[in-house]
Write a protein that binds this DNA or RNA. Structure first.
Lengths: 127, 127
DNA sequence: TATGCACGCTTGATAAATTTAGCAAAGCGG
DNA sequence: CCGCTTTGCTAAATTTATCAAGCGTGCATA
């Protein structure tokens, strides 16, 4: 119940904000459609501004943030996506990013795995 | 033509990456479903890992980033969403041998590796 | 051998996003 | 007035994400 209501209010608020930005820039719906290289249709933008879209995709928000020159993160927040975006305590730590959670293996097991990996890689060699 | 292709490849790469993370953590599909408090179903996760989902919602990506303890922004990027400004190039920092990119492997190579991993794991017993 | 169960996977349905096509009102020059 | 264009909008169609339920297989244990 509250979820729908909240989402609706958010959508309306976002829409109003977006509309104010567009009008502030003296642009027409089709102008914006054009400015985003068709990545956002004028029809969709209309629905968006009128609060009929509860969860616009980040791609759309990004395109609009470019056109209106407003921070992407701000739109993301207003749209209800996780706010305190990316950069924060993600750093430090070791590079766990593109890596396997290999830390649970013993030294021997690890080297075994790595050896196996290189073997597997040698069979193909697709960088 | 290329758009679809690219999206497909991205989806597959993301899926492989996600799968490697899950297996690396020795978790089952249902484990993850549980870990996210049902916010991601095991069925959906399966499709996601097999590259059948082209554009998973940020919500899902966020939930998974929590479970696997990997930066949200990274997943967003891999999923094909506009790169969050930062663009931290910590990339080649991992000279660590124990860290490697599993997403460069072919399907067969990957499954071989994973099989080997589970074998290694079985010998050890999960902490 | 049978039985149960956990696992990964596929299928079918549903809801929401996004596009396409087109309408009605308003403006404007002839 | 009259045609032409622009603008905002919307109904219908298409696409996509997501879920719930069920299937098949391997693996254990009785």
């Amino acid at each position: 119940m509250s979820e729908e209501e909240v989402a609706k209010e958010r959508a309306e608020a976002l829409g109003a904000y977006l509309k104010s930005q567009r009008l502030g820039a003296s642009l027409t719906l089709r102008d914006v459609e054009e400015a985003t290289e068709k990545s956002v249709s004028n029809a969709y933008l209309s629905q968006l501004e009128n609060g009929k879209i509860h969860k616009p995709s980040p791609n759309v928000l990004h395109a609009l943030s470019m056109v209106y020159q407003i921070p992407y993160a701000k739109l993301m927040e207003r749209a209800g996506y996780v706010s305190p975006a990316a950069t924060r305590k993600d750093s430090e730590k070791h590079g766990q990013a593109a890596t396997f959670a290999i830390e649970n293996l013993s030294k021997e097991e690890e080297s075994e795995l790595l050896k196996f990996l290189s073997y597997v890689r040698s069979k193909k060699g697709k960088p």
